[in-house]
């Protein structure tokens, strides 16, 4: 491998629907401005977006899949956080 690697960037697009920026893929680019342009050219060809974030892939801190149980299991039993846990008589109406 003589070719130097060009950094990888993760691309997040905020769509027209007003939703939050959402991860949609990645691009290779030597710097941030080029990454932004590449993201625009690659991921908004069909009018998908109104705003783009690019983040160096190496800067993403991810949770460890091995810790999935300790991180996410405890919430499964906390059903009192969900509205359906509470019973309200129908006559009261929507709440």
């Amino acid at each position: 491998m003589t070719e130097k690697t060009t950094p990888l960037w993760e691309v997040f697009i905020r769509s027209r629907t007003g939703m939050a920026h959402r991860h949609c893929g990645s691009v290779h680019a030597a710097d941030a401005e080029m990454a932004l342009q590449a993201a625009r050219d690659v991921y908004t060809r069909r009018g998908e977006g109104l705003s783009i974030w690019v983040v160096p892939s190496s800067e993403i801190i991810a949770s460890d899949p091995a810790q999935k149980d300790e991180l996410f299991e405890p919430t499964a039993s906390k059903i009192y956080r969900h509205p359906t846990f509470y019973e309200i008589p129908e006559e009261v109406g929507n709440m």
Binding site: H28, A38, D41, V42, R45
Partner: peptide
């Protein structure tokens, strides 16, 4: 020169 640019120039 790059795949990204293939797409960029086509735009």
């Amino acid at each position: 020169p790059t795949l990204e640019e293939d797409i960029g120039l086509a735009n």
